[in-house]
Nucleic acid binder design. Structure first.
Length: 277
DNA sequence: AAGAAGTCCTGGGCGC
DNA sequence: TGCGCCCAGGACTTCT
């Protein structure tokens, strides 16, 4: 389940492996992966050269020298990997971009939740997928004061704190794994109503959020299930997780048994001692 | 209108 | 052994 650190890891891999490469062919094995794409999808990509890869929240933005862009959302099970041409096909390969380097950029997505959307050159500058997103937690100009302003603006929400942190329009890029990790590090129970979170507690979230996301990027992401980086390697942050997937095990900080409950429709892991019962 | 619930999808794990 | 059931979850749509 790629979240901000996993998508950022893939982005960096693709900058290294794919920028400068031209598309020589496109094979669409499952058209359902393509979103708002016309019949000219394949034709307008062939001959175009990848010029850069950006990221906004969990969305990867491939930039082509034609001015076209591809928005890629991996959702639950999506993968983007670069393999030598002729590598035996993965069962769940949905779209393959053959490159002029005798390599292939493959979009693999077992659960078919992910998508690739073509944004043609000259399209309106405001894109609905990106426009509604909240701030990037790791942006250099996103300060602790900005975070507290954000919290204050949402301060009367009756939703629990986990649901708010998962809300991409509030803060962008967090998903189920890292929200559990951040709330544990900040010592806040995931079911607490957001409106009841004190200013001190809210202030604790900011540094923990930044530290955990940065550490996870350094570790090349978390492979819990299907995630791999641009070269097909697993992320190393799994072994550093404090609570996610550790139900029944002892808390690394206090030794209490980690619990798993359901919050905001998501499996939610927390320490009853560190996070206040 | 905020917030909750339903929806999409597949494979793995479980109980019987 | 094999079948059916439930679970995983991001974010959009539908409901209350």
């Amino acid at each position: 389940m790629p979240e901000l650190p996993e998508v950022e890891t893939i982005r960096r891999d693709l900058v290294r492996l794919v920028v400068g490469r031209a598309v020589v062919a496109v094979d669409v094995g499952w058209p359902g992966s393509l979103k708002d794409v016309g019949p000219d999808f394949t034709a307008r990509l062939i001959g175009a050269r990848f010029s850069g890869f950006a990221r906004r929240a969990k969305i990867l933005i491939a930039e082509l020298d034609s001015g076209d862009r591809l928005l890629v959302h991996l959702k639950m099970s999506g993968r983007l990997t670069v393999v030598p041409a002729g590598t035996p096909p993965d069962k769940h390969t949905r779209v393959t971009f053959e490159l002029d380097s005798r390599e292939e950029l493959r979009f693999i997505d077992m659960r078919k939740f992910g998508y690739i959307k073509l944004v043609p050159v000259g399209a309106p500058a405001v894109l609905p997928e990106l426009d509604r997103l909240g701030p990037e937690p790791l942006a250099p100009d996103f300060t602790a004061a900005d975070w507290l302003d954000l919290v204050a603006a949402k301060g009367n929400s009756k939703r629990n704190v986990k649901a708010v942190l998962l809300d991409q329009t509030f803060i962008a890029g967090l998903g189920n794994i890292y929200v559990d990790e951040i709330l544990h590090a900040a010592g806040i129970h995931p079911e607490r109503p957001f409106a009841d979170v004190s200013a001190d507690e809210a202030a604790r979230i900011y540094p923990e959020m930044r530290r955990i996301l940065l550490d996870a990027i350094v570790g090349r992401g978390t492979t819990f299930d299907l995630y791999v980086d641009g070269e097909g390697r697993r992320g190393e942050y799994l072994e550093r997780l404090a609570v996610y997937g550790r139900q029944g095990k002892s808390c690394r900080r206090c030794g209490s048994v980690i619990e798993k409950i359901r919050v905001a429709g998501r499996g939610t892991h927390f320490c009853p001692e560190c996070q206040g019962g």
